[in-house]
Design a protein around this nucleic acid. Sequence first.
DNA 1: ACTCCACAGGAATTGAGGGGTG
DNA 2: CACCCCTCAATTCCTGTGGAGT
Length: 407
Amino acid sequence: MSRFEVGSTIFTDKDILSEDWIPEQLIGRDDELDTYAEVLNPVLNGWNPNNIFLYGRTGVGKSASTKEILTELLDACEKADISLNVVFLNCNGLSSSYQVAVHLVNEMRNSRYSLTTVTTELDPISETGLPKKRVFNELINDFENLSGNVICVLDEVDKVGSDDEILYELPRASTNYDLDVNISVIGISNDFKFRDGLSAKVRDSLCEEELFFDPYDATELQQILKQRTEKALKPDVLNDDVIPLCSAFAANDTGSARQAISLLRKACEIAERNNIDIVSETEVREAETQLQIEQVEEGMRSLTPQGKLILLTISILAVNDKLPARTKTIYNRYQTIADHHNKNALQRRRTHDHLEELTSQGILTLTDNNQGRGNYNTYTIDVELKSILSVLKTEQDYKEHIQRLTN
DNA sequence: ACTCCACAGGAATTGAGGGGTG
DNA sequence: CACCCCTCAATTCCTGTGGAGT
């Protein structure tokens, strides 16, 4: 058998089972799209639409719906000869207003997304080193070269954190700098609490309209998977229980289409790799485990060496069946382990932050205990222990430690 | 009913490090 | 090159908390 094979036994078009593929017909989002259209409708009368705050869990079609509705709006505007500019920016990885501003400027100057209709001939600016004032000025200048309405979509805006200066400045920019353009902001967030964390002024302006996207239920997820598999997979490669199973997994967990799709895709990949012609429950369950490992791996990539050390501490406690454990226990154990690896242990406060970080990665879960005299947190792992161990084993520093542990 | 423990987590600050500008 | 700017892990200091103990 050749090492290389042309074509695939399972897939016809694998890209359709990827995150960025947007179907022509979004399933189960009709009501949301209608409301969305209503809010944006003033654009067609030449008015400035309200700012919109859009929230809902990951993978419930927020970004896809936004792209869909804005594409329709751009079409409508073109027909009616109304000037509309759209800037679409994903804020993932941007941790300050400064960075958001830089990326807005560069996004406008280098339209990588088809949705971005704004273009200028100017060169992109550096992402670091420049004074904040300078960056903000560049942004304002770029706006100055436009006319009509500008809609700035800030996807995953919660990733920017507590620094909401840019969210304060953007909606006010046209008044404050006497610009010709009207600027509206659409903020998309996975985090319900993000809205409450905003300063009152920002909340008032950004949240003029609030749209909420429900998680998908199992039936909707099944429809979504069917819609995609018809195009992505060869006929009859799925056992009947595969789609319901993937949907059920995702519906129980997050209600996320993304989760259901990547589960299905992973199951198909596993089947293909093992030369299995028909994907069944076995592959779905295997895929579930593999995705967990990937989740841990991805989480680990963002960890500092100290963060990894804390994860090591947690897994040692897990092996010794000491979980869930309270912060104090974890911290004490961590100090010993740090010492053992000739590393300086962090202060208590900082380890809290690392534990919180691991929790937000979905690797740990936190339980709040209020037992009078001293309320405390306990942590336990939220993924299979073997997933964590298999990832930690790839760390040179901890390889040996893990091996001793598992024997 | 009132105190007070023992912890959670917010705010301010530091210091090293990367980069830009003239 | 000197000087300015932003970033991020980490520290220090501090306030908030809620029911068990009295």
